[in-house]
Computed example of a mutant assay.
Amino acid sequence: MDRIDARPEAFAHLVYRYLWPYAYFRDVTRGSFLERQQNYRHNRRMGMHLPGFMLKWACLTVFFYLLGSLCEELLELVLPAACCYVTGAWTLTILVQLCVAWLWLKRFPDIPRG
């Protein structure tokens, strides 16, 4: 009987899978029309998970802005506050991308021919 190697995943890889939704979606710009349509349907099915990812990124955005506010107001540390605000802006950018992707996948049922 074959033994399956069941090593635990590295913590960084678990965090990556928990936060980064783009690995679960397929490229719909390459291949034949049938392949692109199949990939788009796969993306629509996976789109049901986007609200969970949006919630995670919204929490990260709020966390970094609150941390920046804490550093700025209470601790009077300008550079760490600026780093927190910039990181919060990056997380907000990912959140907006996820919202647009979710709305797009809900609005357009099939990939346009052409």
Rank of each mutant, 00 (worst) to 15 (best):
M1I: 05
R3I: 07
I4T: 07
I4E: 14
I4K: 15
D5Y: 07
R7Q: 13
R7S: 14
E9V: 04
A10H: 12
A10N: 06
A12K: 12
H13T: 04
H13G: 02
Y16F: 10
R17I: 03
Y18I: 04
Y18C: 08
A23H: 08
A23E: 05
A23F: 11
R30E: 11
R30Q: 15
G31P: 00
S32L: 07
L34Q: 13
E35I: 06
R36V: 03
Q37Y: 02
Q37R: 14
Q37C: 10
Y40M: 07
R41D: 11
R41V: 06
N43Y: 05
R44G: 00
R45D: 10
G47R: 01
M48H: 13
M48K: 10
M48R: 15
L50W: 00
L50V: 03
K56T: 06
K56H: 10
C59I: 03
L60S: 05
V62L: 14
F63K: 00
Y65T: 02
S69Y: 09
S69N: 14
S69K: 02
C71E: 10
L75P: 00
L79S: 12
L79I: 09
A81H: 00
C83Q: 02
C83M: 13
C84L: 01
C84D: 01
Y85D: 05
V86I: 15
T87H: 05
G88Y: 08
G88Q: 06
W90G: 03
V96M: 14
L98I: 13
A101M: 15
W104E: 13
L105V: 10
K106P: 00
K106I: 06
K106L: 15
R107G: 09
P109Q: 07
R113G: 10
